[in-house]
């Protein structure tokens, strides 16, 4: 068992939107170690979500390699991917559209176990309830429907559903950007605890460098389909190398009145 969980080599993704061909991922290579949190940061349209979809098999790559634990999973069909599904799971951005509105919460969390026939039929519901408890949802809410929950609680449901199969890798696609600050902190802390307790690895996709800087091990800066800078989180924040990273950091308003406003906020700046 090697220490590298996910390795991506020279990945390209292009597809047709209407009549035009777009090329959102242009030759990306990266690796993610076991137990590591790698944050992928970029602005809208930089290709970060396409990259996540490609790793999850929702989008076919046009070339390149995605190796999960040494096995190439790029371009596997649905059937071939099924074996890897329990290992790579995902939490989506929008807590309102990411849960089937007609399923009860315990059903939603149990479903992955049913599909992969994990555990005895009778123990699956118990597993689902344990998972609810683990993410901080009272088990007697299991019979409710998603619309009866707040955004933060729905995100907990999504996390429970993703983790019920005990994956190794969790891809988080902007999991907190639709949430309020105080709820955002709750979810980030939950993810942090779960990672510690379950030995997970995270690929954390975000537009918020300030947020990921507080908990990611490494940060990859993505710009126009390429990774322009990658390194330890602290280092990227305090000593950015690439022009794009510098520009972004210059524009981030740090909530601290004792420091001068970021350069991009100064009226006379051009």
């Amino acid at each position: 068992m090697s220490n590298t969980l996910l390795r991506i080599d020279d990945l390209h993704v292009s597809f047709r939107v209407g009549k035009t061909m777009i090329h959102p991922v242009r030759g990306i290579s990266l690796h993610l170690d076991r137990g590591e949190t790698l944050a992928l940061v970029g602005e809208s349209g930089c290709g970060k979500t396409t990259l996540a979809r490609t790793i999850l098999g929702l989008q076919a790559p046009s070339s390149g390699r995605i190796a999960y634990d040494g096995n190439d999973i790029a371009g596997l069909d649905r059937f071939g991917l099924k074996r890897f599904r329990p290992h790579i799971q995902c939490v989506f951005q929008d807590p309102f559209s990411s849960l089937n509105p007609r399923k009860r919460v315990e059903q939603l969390i149990r479903e992955p176990l049913d599909i992969h026939q994990i555990g005895e039929r009778s123990t699956r519901l118990k597993r689902a309830h344990e998972m609810m408890e683990r993410v901080g949802l009272p088990t007697d809410w299991g019979r409710r429907f998603p619309h009866e929950f707040s955004g933060g609680q729905r995100q907990r449901i999504g996390i429970a559903r993703a983790l019920v199969m005990q994956p190794d890798l969790l891809i988080c696609d902007e999991p907190v950007s639709a949430l309020d600050v105080s709820i955002q902190a709750q979810i980030i802390n939950l993810l942090w605890e779960l990672k510690r307790d379950m030995g997970l690895s995270y690929l954390f996709i975000s537009h918020d460098l300030m947020l990921v800087e507080t908990f990611a091990d490494r940060v990859a800066m993505m710009y126009q389909g390429e990774i322009v800078e990658i390194g330890p989180a602290r280092q990227v924040w305090s000593n950015p190398q690439h022009e794009f990273t510098r520009r972004m950091i210059d524009a981030i308003p740090v909530p601290d009145v004792t420091r001068p406003p970021p350069p991009a906020f100064r009226i006379d700046a051009k």
Partner: peptide, 12 residues
């Protein structure tokens, strides 16, 4: 919808 993508991801 994201929930359909989620179903694909869990292997449905």
């Amino acid at each position: 919808k994201a929930y359909v993508q989620g179903c694909i991801v869990v292997g449905m």
